[in-house]
Design a protein around this nucleic acid. Structure first.
Lengths: 222, 222
DNA sequence: AATTCCAAGATTTTCGAAAATCTTGCTTGC
DNA sequence: GCAAGCAAGATTTTCGAAAATCTTGGAATT
């Protein structure tokens, strides 16, 4: 693995996780020290991330972490529903045994990790990774590279918003996300496209709504 | 404008226009000579283009122009229809006077250039640029940064396929593309979402079909 | 007092060479 | 004769410094 790839992975993780805050300027000297490498691999990584809209840049003034906003979150959510609904219907039409096995398997892995609870940082990473794997498995048979690419882009983007929500606030009615995942898998495996897409849209819109109610006080406090 | 930006523009143009052939390896020494600059700005541009899927790269083995295929073209076409249909309906719902004016104006500019005919290389560039402006104007009021971003990505991708078709083959029944554009604009301005989307889908699928029949003999000959 | 101009410092961008890795073709051993 | 190993050359990747540009703060002018 080259240094530029390491830089890309590290920067991406730190931006998505919020360790580098939205809007924060990314100075070469600072990054060079933080990740212990020269300017070249960092600039390559930053250019890739810019193309993916995770960082912004102005010529001769450098890079910054791309800002977040509620408008953008709703835009990403709605576009996600459009893209993934299509991909899910295509998968339901085209998917074979292997696809079904992937869904069942990744759902099982996700439920195991969720039941285990999130105690360590490592747990959080595993849960996130299995959550991603499950949603990717649902769409895996759609046979469209472009839909999958856009799914990845939007998944990453929404992860930026989801991250601050990971710690559930006390006193809130706990939402059974895993039950939603199970229902979604069941409808999909039953090849019920309409129901599956409705559940998928609900799943994302509910997350967005909770995010909005969670972020509103934060934004007001700033 | 920095050298890296010049490199990005030049490389992108040369890839989209086919001057750099699909699959061709991109050697640093060769590019450095061709565009008269050092490695740094070239590598930055190549990394951006890689994120946009116009070039591929393998660690320590360098970059290549991303390959083309008929499967991928159909995938891009279908995904385009999905994205742009949604954006068009949103624009029809949300668009105001300024949006309408943009459509009428860009259509007029497109028709002027089309009537002028394509004699010089400059004409071809102008036609392409106005074609893009017209399609962008249609979607301009959708109020979704993500839909517009995906539109741009897919427009660029399809330009790669469209380019070899620009010279119309003699003996083929001439297709009146501009009439399609006019009908599309008319339905859109009449706020008839169903008709506009149907015309849009037809417009793209017809282009794809013509491309397929045009490319099939080329592919067979290789 | 407000504005413009300039210099010093900070920062980004680019280059050219060094380091690391891959490729090719030859040699060696079987 | 053939495969494995190795050396030489080609290529990519990375670094460190130089060049270009921006920012800041103060001095000079109106």
């Amino acid at each position: 693995m080259t240094l530029a790839e390491k830089a890309y992975d590290s920067l991406r993780r730190d931006i998505v996780s919020g360790a580098l805050k939205p809007g924060a300027p990314l100075r070469m000297a600072q990054l060079s020290q933080r990740y212990d490498m020269g300017f070249s691999p960092l600039r390559e990584a930053l250019n890739r991330l810019q193309a993916e809209r995770l960082v912004t840049s102005v010529a001769l003034k450098g890079f910054s972490v791309a800002p977040l906003s509620m408008d953008e979150m709703w835009d990403a959510t709605n576009t996600r529903v459009l893209i993934e609904s299509r991909a899910l219907r295509l998968s339901i039409d085209l998917g074979g045994d292997e696809w079904e096995a992937g869904i069942v398997g990744s759902l099982h892995a996700l439920l195991l990790q969720a039941a285990r609870g999130t105690v360590t940082e490592e747990d959080a990473r595993a849960l996130e990774s299995r959550h991603h794997a499950f949603h990717a498995a649902l769409l895996g048979a759609c046979n469209s590279g472009w839909l999958l690419e856009f799914f990845q882009r939007l998944y990453l983007e929404s992860e930026r918003y989801r991250h601050p929500m990971l710690a559930p606030r006390p006193g809130e009615p706990a939402r059974d996300v895993q039950a939603e995942h199970e229902a979604l898998a069941k409808a999909t495996l039953a090849r019920n496209g309409d129901l599956a897409c409705a559940l998928l849209a609900d799943h994302y819109r509910r997350t967005a709504q909770r995010l909005e109610s969670l972020m509103a006080p934060v934004a007001a406090a700033e």
